[in-house]
Amino acid sequence: MADKCRVRITVNGVAYDQEVEPRLLLADFLREDLDLTGTHVGCEHGVCGACTVLLNGDSVRSCLCLTVQADGAEITTVEGLGTVDNLNSLQQKFREHHALQCGFCTPGMLMTATDLLSKNENMSDEELREGLSGNLCRCTGYEHIVNAVRAAMNE
């Protein structure tokens, strides 16, 4: 086992100062070390997007990122959006439009959509679908997800 490295990472506004193995994936750091299990791992090879989080405001795949690479960064995970009693507007739109079934892809979808919406004002459906195409959902057929993100965009 390699020596541990010290990382200082802010997650959802909380500052952490921790020793981690250099090989520890950011996804595992969030899920196992911080117990933030809202970030899901669907493939571990960068295709499904379930593990998407925001790193300094940009969406990244936490299964392709080592924890040490995130040293000094600000991370937002799904737990950093609204709460069960107070969903944020994107989460609310997902609920109203039935944009989730099993909910496994949902945290990644929400983080990707948050990133998309923060950078683009007016996306056509085609652009929206393209923007979401890096996140796989096996349940919904995407129709309701597109509707929800469009509704959030138009709000």
Binding site: D35, T37, V78, E79, T83, D85, F94, R95, C102, G103
Partner: peptide, 23 residues
Amino acid sequence: APVQRLEDPRLLTGHGKFTDDVK
């Protein structure tokens, strides 16, 4: 009626409990 799903709030906020989330 198209009622909103009762399971959604926990799943939308990362508080679902999938098997791998059980510690």
